[in-house]
Design a protein around this nucleic acid. Structure first.
Lengths: 215, 215, 215, 215
DNA sequence: AATGAATGAGCCTTCATTCAT
DNA sequence: TATGAATGAAGGCTCATTCAT
């Protein structure tokens, strides 16, 4: 991320924006080079091929993602699990928003069945699952959270976190929302908070929470 | 769907399964033809090219989808909005499960920025939104549902409905769930019901619902 | 030419018009069939393939051409060679005009190097040359015509006869002539007559001819 | 024409010779590449496709053609129109002979109905017509030439100039002439001169000319 | 006599990559 | 570091033809 050749950076930017619109396989290296105003051969030179370029993007995205997650996860013993979970959600939303273009392409390419993806799964996403599970189980143990199947909770959480990046056009053109605006992100975070209070937190607390939330 | 040439059907099946694994752009017509044990030229002959094949898949998927949705939407005046919403969710989950392979590729390809997709948006998904909004607003008017922004509710609902088809590998390999099993679908439907009770229905009812649900 | 199936005729008409615009190799049998509103397979059925269709056109064109030529060539001993030559020219122009679409494509396809063309050369065009040579040599022998190299005369004559069919667009769009109009044909025939008088007929006669012509 | 990559040149040479024998549409890029001992992709690389290759050939042919024509057209006020016209004819014959292979294919392809051809018409051939008309009209004004319709004169001239390239096989195999030999070109030029004297120049002069010519 | 399905061969173009410079 | 030429492989598509009906 630090100091890297202007060329390398230009390629990355061009690639990300093209992959988002036309997908990885639908984009040619020549298009990328043209958009980046760079010679085609540089893509092979710097990234060892088109595949390598994608790998670079995906890996460095997840590297930062996990780092962010780990930071958010560090909680003191006195902190409630709920607060920790909310902080994690906040961090992820923030990270995704800051890297919104890469987020989008990563979430799509991850739906394919390639070697790269399988590797990502077994490293980064397993790690992510580990942290989420930790928080959830701690919360359950301390009766803060309802006794629920963590898998299903994680599934729902993940689906909501990735939604704005998987279907930005749907949000824009059908629901008339503006997923790229900071305002949207804040709103959406509140929705997720509500979801945490309502569906995860133990019922009594949740009822109170609703009152607080609505007041 | 009715009676169609063996060849046409074979092409569709091969295409769906390949598109799922390698994506539309990552799949060649020759691969499809080989897998379908059919001559390549038939793809152009029957679908007017590879693009047309995708279009055919997407459109016939949504045609059935909307039909299912419309059926589920027909509610008597005495029925509660909640029951209607639950029936809609059930129908969608059922339809998606029955067409799970097409569902998967449709949800992925829909994340690209093509003419086809934009057309689908403005016809099928706008229609879908219309129905969902109707139910939600009726429920709100009759105090059955909380006063919430329909856009955000729809967004969450859609994200959860599409999740199992967008990231099946994640479910399988990270969460160790089996999204293709009927059992999973039933379980997941309960989760969505819970989500309806908890986050949409008015709080009093929801509290009762939880009791019922947990009992 | 007599009674033949409607289908066969429709194919021929469509083919001729398409070959003229896009050339033989630039036209597909499917285009022909579509234009003729006939099933593609009929082309193979009736003409034994696309090649056979061309062959049919070329051969039947030249069959009629030679027949016309032979008729025009029959001259009584008392007739002047000049009159015979002029009648031949008239016949050819008439035949070409009546079959103007086929003429055009035949003259173009004849510029290629195929087996069909080579066969046509050695039969029809050699025959044509024979007749022209006969007339010319008779005329020379009788001092009606100047002593000239028949090859070059034939060459010039042929070039002028075929011109309107080889470059109709040039005539239309650059010279603003109307090669398809009967009026043009008459005018052009007069030009050729003038050419006969001026460049072939013995000089004294030619001078008189000019006077007559101009008066 | 100047310095250009070996590959580019090899492609052009191969293309010209193949187009001549089998026509543009009858020749495949692979054939060209094979004959040129070059990779197929280079055709698209250098000429932007097969169509572009033809365009390149046609345009650079006419570019040189017009240049030659313009040079020949520059006449001093003291020079007779006849001499100017003869010089133009000489230049064209020379240019065509020097580029005999391209000439042939250009004259044939020009008989098709494509966008390229229509463009060529309206630029180069209109220009050519302009120059020819200038000379002819000047000659007529000064009573050097007979009062004739320029269109028809141009038509005859053009037909004779292009003949050897449109039907070389006819000349070779039927008339037993050798259009590619320098000797033929000289002979043919004399024929055209004769044509100029006989059919264009005013009669008195023409009679003298014939005497000179025959002596 | 005429058709629609199906084929195998071939079309032109574009691909990602390499390599000498 | 960066380039333009050149490549072999593969891309999607269209071709003329065949065949059972």
């Amino acid at each position: 991320m630090a100091v890297q050749s202007k060329t390398k950076e230009k390629i990355i930017n061009a690639a990300v924006s093209l992959f988002n619109v036309k997908g990885f396989n639908g984009t040619s290296v020549r298009e990328i080079a043209t958009k980046a105003k760079v010679n085609v051969a540089n893509i092979s030179y710097y990234f060892d091929g088109k595949e390598g370029l994608l790998e670079n993007l995906v890996i460095s995205f997840f590297e930062g993602y996990i780092q962010e997650l780990e930071q958010a996860f560090q909680f003191s013993n006195h902190e409630s699990s709920k607060d920790c979970l909310l902080r994690i959600i906040h961090s992820i939303l923030k990270y995704q928003h800051e890297n919104r273009n890469v987020s989008r392409l990563v979430y799509r390419e991850i739906s394919l069945d390639t070697t790269l993806i399988r590797e990502v799964m077994t490293t980064y996403l397993t790690k992510e699952k580990y942290y989420l599970k930790m928080v959830l189980e701690r919360g359950m143990k301390e009766k803060e959270f309802k006794k629920l199947q963590t898998s299903f909770i994680i599934m729902q959480l993940k689906s909501m976190l990735s939604m704005p990046y998987l279907h930005p056009q749907y949000l824009t053109e059908v629901l008339h929302l503006l997923p790229h605006e900071q305002y949207f992100v804040s709103q959406y975070e509140k929705e997720l908070e509500r979801w945490v209070y309502m569906t995860i937190c133990t019922s009594y607390e949740s009822v109170n929470a609703i009152r607080m939330h609505l007041s």
